[in-house]
Write a protein that binds this DNA or RNA. Structure first.
Lengths: 239, 239
DNA sequence: AGCATGTTTGCGGGTTCCCGCACCCCGACC
DNA sequence: GGTCGGGGTGCGGGAACCCGCAAACATGCT
């Protein structure tokens, strides 16, 4: 068995190497990479290696790296080991996981035993392991409780990027009025109206929506960067 | 000499404790706290202790903790040890440092020697130490190169929070037209016009400004949270 | 004083945005 | 077949926003 560790923080990387060695004695080679790009290259060179990686890395995001790895070999088992359970991360991961692939999501604040257990469950038993806290935000995200549908989330991203209603409409192949309708639903789900009683008119709803989404960690810097890259691509194609 | 270490990541905290012990043999007591609130309490109990702390902590931000510590004892020497040199962090720190106080800003990616040197310079020699990279964003922030003035930055924050032009005006005691003028300058400094050739009208400038500020790390989650808290306070006072 | 520079404010118009109302389409269920 | 609910669409009005123009106003320099 081979395991590839991708983590930019040297202390955390050392801790991970130790944890892998302790939890997986049957693992004969442990590879390490300090950045997303290097990790992708190593994964390409070792097609049978399982992966455990951080999500928050600069300059190449963990989600980007995971996406290219999974695109090249959809069966790879990946354990994400992250500091946060932000909805933006959770949603970003579940967006890119291929059908039937085993993966895990463990918080860095978890105990050593949790991490060891997750390592064995995924890489030996081929079983998905999602931390309880992460499950929480997952349920909150996809359940009825003010959860955003895929389409609504896309439009929220477009708004956060600063697109006009009209350009969102052409980009998503919708009518202008439909875009505005969805915005209405987004405002509703973000409780932009209920929160403030007499504070009517003090807020620009469009900007306020982005602010509350950021404060609730529904959006974060990584998600914005990815969306910005896609937008630039689309703009280029558009001419 | 006493040193108080405030850092939520256990691995990093252990590393810091070791570094302090190695670099400052004259330090007889090392206190440690795993959160901002606990750090403030310990600082209150040990008025002569110097502080070395992380900036990015949940739930109580490092800047918040530093502010209350400095408010209670403005002479305290604080070394900030952070992962990032985001303009939002740098600006946040220089906003709260009292006149004449010695402080330092060292990146976690710095070498052991750099950290040791900084520890001795600040706590023994009473000298400010700012990492080269951090100095870079500092110069970029306050120089002529598209740097934002204090007032412009405030308005950028208000816009990011989703306030209306009118409410910004009343909050900052300005005319509505002045607010819009400053917004114009902000759009200019953010290159919202130059960047896109024929992409006229595809962007909502107000939202686009927030997006690019976030992407350039001029704003980040912590800054937004602080601004949101201040806004809530102002709204309550307003009635 | 005289002048230059930069900031603040008012006015007006063109555009975008917010949102209520009504219509259409289509799958679901009786 | 009927009808019912949800999502997409068009129309229209009121508000907010973007921005050019010009008049005050402060400030600093000669």
């Amino acid at each position: 068995m081979k395991v590839l560790v991708i983590e930019d923080d040297p202390l955390h990387r050392a801790y991970l190497l130790e944890a892998v060695a302790a939890a997986l004695p049957e693992c004969e080679t442990v590879l390490e990479a300090a950045a997303g790009g290097a990790g992708e290259a190593l994964a390409r060179a070792h097609p049978e290696a399982h992966v455990v990686m951080d999500l928050q890395m600069a300059p190449r995001n963990g989600i980007e790296a995971a996406r290219t790895i999974w695109r090249e070999r959809p069966g790879t088992r990946i354990l994400f080991w992250s500091n946060y359970a932000d909805e933006a991360y959770v949603r970003g991961v579940s967006r890119i996981v291929p059908d039937g692939a085993a993966y895990g999501y463990v918080l860095k604040s978890a105990s050593d035993e949790r991490l060891h257990l997750a390592l064995r469950s995924i890489f030996v038993e081929n079983q998905c392991v999602i931390d309880r806290e992460v499950r929480g935000t997952q349920a909150l995200s996809f359940g009825r409780k003010g959860g955003f549908s895929e389409g609504e989330y896309d439009i929220l991203l477009d708004v956060a990027l600063g697109l006009t209603d009209r350009s969102i409409a052409t980009r998503r192949n919708l009518s202008l009025r439909t875009v505005q309708n969805r915005l209405q639903q987004i405002y509703e789900k973000l409780d932009l109206h209920e929160g403030n009683p007499a504070a009517e008119g003090t807020f620009n709803l469009r900007a306020r929506a982005v602010a509350t989404a950021l404060l609730r960690k529904l959006l974060n810097h990584g998600a914005l960067e990815r969306a910005e890259a896609e937008l630039a691509e689309w703009l280029r194609r558009q001419g």
